[in-house]
Design a protein around this nucleic acid. Structure first.
Length: 295
DNA sequence: AAGATGCACAACCGCATTGTG
DNA sequence: ACACAATGCGGTTGTGCATCT
């Protein structure tokens, strides 16, 4: 049974939004909230479909949108996150306050990808090109290398986390390192992604921490940077991993509580801080993407 | 000066997932 | 359990502007 269109097409405006439309939408949402996007246009008096209104709001009109060029730090973060998460723009955007998935997607497609290419780095794999060129898979790096990387990251992170935990006061609610934290992290999509970072899918996706863990579901995961494959456990379709995206680090690690939220941010940072193969030095050479590197 | 081309970004489309009755 | 509506997401396209010839 075919899906009905999200809105009735006839009479609805398409294309760029005008300032009056923006104003109407902003005023309406400020007054009433967006409520049901589907009914919003009618209620607000806009001749747009709800989807278009939602997109306009989330990508452009939202008050917390940070406009303007990306900073160097933001670009680095996007590249690092892309290495981990692949083309999961919403997940990446969730780690960059004020930036939208669309904006990041555009940044990647128009600037960062090219810059990586110019630097001889495959934007898909984040590996340096071999002589075979972009389409050639990077020289095979053993899966054990990932394990070693992960283990190093884990150890370093663990050390830092425990160090950081000393700074947390208020004992009853303080964030104390959960002994299973890294196990959960490993079993989360972040860990999954990490394992697949170089496309080195391995049959055994058990945690290096706990080989006994039986909860890990390998699924039909494809390489993060290549296929942007499913990462969530138990997924069987390429896009199913989205379910955990928006608060992926929160939702994936623990059943509940603020603790997971706090520690998830830390975990992300720890992962990002770990120098996998993200030599970002080339970014330092250019002030902005307006001045592309030598190519 | 005018047309061609390239680039950046906003917006759209279609599919997947989630929520609800 | 199922069907359907609503929403979210990623890929793609369209449009306007800048630069080149």
């Amino acid at each position: 049974m075919g899906r009905r269109p999200c809105c009735e097409r006839k009479g609805l405006k398409k294309g760029p939004w005008g300032p009056e439309e923006d104003e109407i939408l902003i005023n309406y949402i400020n007054k009433h909230g967006h409520g049901s996007w589907r009914s919003l246009p009618k209620l607000a008096g806009l001749r747009r479909c709800g989807k278009s209104c939602r997109l306009r709001w989330t990508n452009y009109l939202r008050p917390d949108i940070k406009r303007g060029p990306f900073t160097l730090d933001e670009e680095k973060l996007v590249i690092q996150l892309h290495a981990i998460l692949g083309n999961r723009w919403a997940a990446i955007a969730s780690q960059l306050p004020g930036r939208t998935d669309n904006e990041i997607k555009n940044l990647w497609n128009t600037h960062l990808k090219k810059r990586l290419l110019c630097m001889g780095v495959d934007p898909l794999t984040h590996e340096p090109f071999t002589s075979g060129g972009p389409t050639t898979r990077p020289r095979s790096s053993p899966a054990t290398r990932h394990m070693a990387q992960w283990e190093s990251a884990r150890l370093e992170a663990e050390a830092r986390l425990s160090k950081e935990s000393l700074f947390f006061n208020s004992p009853p609610t303080s964030v104390k390192p959960d002994p299973d934290f890294f196990l959960r992290l490993w079993n989360s999509e972040v860990g999954e992604s990490f394992r697949k970072l170089n496309g080195e899918a391995k049959a055994d996706c058990r945690s290096p921490i706990s080989q006994a863990s039986s909860s890990t579901k390998c699924g039909s995961v494809s390489g993060v940077s290549i296929d942007v494959g499913p990462i969530a456990a138990g997924s069987s379709t390429p896009k199913s991993s989205r379910t955990e995206d928006p608060i992926m680090f929160d939702a994936s690690f623990s059943s509940s509580s603020n603790e997971s939220e706090d520690s998830s941010d830390t975990a992300l940072q720890l992962l990002l801080d770990f120098p996998i193969n993200n030599d970002m030095s080339f970014l330092e050479d250019v002030d902005t993407y307006a001045t592309p590197p030598q190519c």
